[in-house]
Write a protein that binds this DNA or RNA. Structure first.
Lengths: 218, 218
DNA sequence: TAAACATTCAATATAATTATTGAATGTTTG
DNA sequence: CAAACATTCAATAATTATATTGAATGTTTA
C-alpha cells in the first residue's frame, strides 16, 4: 500500500510546472498551435536552450509531448483540459489576488484609452454569430489562425491590420479576438479600428478557451 | 500599458502555491472544513511553524484567508473553484503522468486485496440516493462531517467504525466516501465491511468534489 | 498581571530552480 | 560525407524554496 503523501508529491510536480511565468506563456502559445522549439523560442522571445529546458520539464509533468518532424521537434499540449486548469486558476487569481487583477486590467488601460473598451462575452458572441449580425476578426498571426479558429472568423493579423482597413465593412459590428484574456492584439485592434471609425468590440476570451469549452472550431 | 509577462508571472505565483505536496494536502484538509493552524498541523503531521509558513504563502497566493477567533487563527479556502483546479490537475496528471497514475492506484491495492474494489461514480451515487436504495457512510472524522456532508450521509469515522458494525444493515447496499480520490479511509472501510459480510462499495470522489460540483450538501 | 497558549517571525542550512554558456547529438541537404 | 541546422545536454552561478530552530507577538485565562 503506497503512501498518500507520495501521490500528493507527484501531483505537486505537475503543479510546479504551472509555477513559472515563462512556462505559462509557452503553454499559452501551444494552446494556439503545435510549434517547434525554435518557433516557441521566437514567439516567447527567449533563448532556445532555455525554452528546450522548460519544455522538457513540461514533458516530465505530462503537460506536453513531442515528436520529431524532419530536423525539428514539434511540441503540443497532451490534454486540452490543461487550458481549463490555467483558465480556472486565472479566474481564482483575478478574484482574490489584487496584484493579478491590477496587472491584468493594466494591460487594457493606457495613455490612449483610460478604460477598457466594451467587451463581448462568450454568450453574446455566440448569439451574434448565430444571427450573422457580426464580422468576427481573428487578429492572431496567420499560422495560429491556420491551425484552428472560431467559425466564420476572418484572419487579420495585427501586424498587417493597418493595410486591410479598406476591406472591412462599416455597416456591421466587428468583434476581434486573439489568444486569450492576457493577449493584447485584440485590444490593439479595437484601438486602431475605433479610431478609424469602425464599430468594433473585443471578445474577452480567446481561441483556446473557446475550444476548451467544446465549442465548434474550423 | 502593463507588460503581459508581468501578468503571467503574477499568475505563476499562484501556480507555484500548488507546486508543493504538503501545501496540496493542507488545501485538501481545508476543503473538508475550516481549521486552526494547530489543527492543520496535527492533521497533516507537520511542525506548526512549518504549516504556518505554508499557510502564509497560500494566503499571499490568494488561495486561503484567515481570521482570528479567540487565540486561534482559523484558515479557510477563499474560493471553492480552487478544489476544481486541483481536481482538474489531478485528472490531467493521472491521464498523462505514469508516476501519478501508478502511485494513485497503489493506494488501493495492497497485500489483502490485489485489486481495488468496485467503485461508485457520481452518477450512480446520485441515482442510489434518489431511489433511497443505499446507505451512505461518511467515514471522515466527526468534525469534518459536522462542517458539511453529503445528503442523508451517516457519520462513521474510520477510527470507530469497528465498534459500529452491529448498527449497520445487511440487507441494503452501503456506499462509503471520505475526503477525495487520494483519501484511503473509504477504501479501508470497504475492506473491513466486506470482510464482515456487508455489501459495500466506495464512492470514487469525496466531499469537496461533490460540493464543488454544486451538488446539495448538509 | 503573570502564566499558558496559539501563532508568527527571524535566522539558518540545505536543496531546488533558473538562466546562461558552449559543447554534443541527431537530422537533412548539398 | 561534410556542412548546416535544430535540439538537447552538461556545467555553472545566481536566485529562490524548504524545513528547522528558537525567540517574539498577541490573546486568553487563572
Amino acid at each position: 500500500m503506497g503512501s498518500q503523501q507520495a501521490v500528493w508529491d507527484a501531483l505537486a510536480q505537475v503543479g510546479k510546472a504551472l509555477g513559472n511565468g515563462h512556462r505559462l506563456v509557452i503553454l499559452d502559445r501551444l494552446a494556439q498551435s503545435d510549434l517547434s522549439v525554435d518557433a516557441i523560442a521566437q514567439s516567447v522571445n527567449l533563448p532556445v536552450a532555455n525554452v528546450s529546458q522548460h519544455l522538457q520539464l513540461l514533458r516530465r509533468a505530462g503537460l506536453v509531448n513531442a515528436s520529431r518532424h524532419g530536423k525539428q521537434v514539434v511540441y503540443r499540449l497532451t490534454d486540452n483540459r490543461t487550458v481549463s486548469v490555467i483558465e480556472l486558476l486565472r479566474q481564482v487569481a483575478e478574484t482574490h489576488v489584487a496584484d493579478v487583477a491590477k496587472l491584468a486590467s493594466g494591460l487594457f488601460t493606457d495613455e490612449h484609452a483610460k478604460t477598457d473598451f466594451d467587451v463581448v462575452s462568450r454568450a453574446e458572441l455566440l448569439a451574434g454569430l448565430q444571427q450573422q449580425s457580426i464580422l468576427l476578426l481573428d487578429v492572431r498571426p496567420a499560422h495560429e489562425f491556420d491551425h484552428g479558429h472560431l467559425p466564420n472568423a476572418v484572419n487579420a493579423p495585427m501586424a498587417s491590420l493597418a493595410t486591410m482597413l479598406d476591406q472591412l465593412p462599416t455597416d456591421i459590428d466587428i468583434v476581434a479576438y486573439c489568444r486569450g484574456p492576457y493577449c493584447v492584439f485584440s485590444h490593439q485592434a479595437v484601438l486602431l479600428l475605433t479610431e478609424k471609425g469602425f464599430r468594433v468590440r473585443r471578445y474577452e476570451e480567446g481561441f483556446p478557451q473557446w475550444k476548451a469549452a467544446g465549442l465548434p472550431i474550423e
